[in-house]
Amino acid sequence: MTMSDLAVTAGWYMALAALLFSIGAIGLLTRRNALVMFMSIELMLNSVNLTFVAVGKELRTLEGQIATLFVMVVAAAEVTIGLAIIVAVFRRRATASVDELSEMKG
């Protein structure tokens, strides 16, 4: 068995990324706490990062790595905004469950 047989190619990383993305999506659909939903979204974003890094390394181009940096920065900015909104909601209702956020319907 040579080293190339053992090599993990970008295809495997992309499969793992797809799996992580699906776990995140399922978490998002089934959990009802805003913070846990938020964690699921972070998982989805990180699966994207994994794809970018793996493909970038395989192709030996820098774009993938740069894209990852941008995604991380944007995700961090969104965390800040999201937590601010969750805190604002929590202050008024003392709950972070999205099921109880149903003032508006129709």
Binding site: F21, A34, T51, A67, I85, A88, V89, L101, S102, M104
Partner: peptide, 23 residues
Amino acid sequence: NEAALKYFIIGVISAAILLFGIS
């Protein structure tokens, strides 16, 4: 508050879906 939280969650999901497509 409810408007902001709903918009935020859907907005971030759409960003994740868009990024997954791009990747």
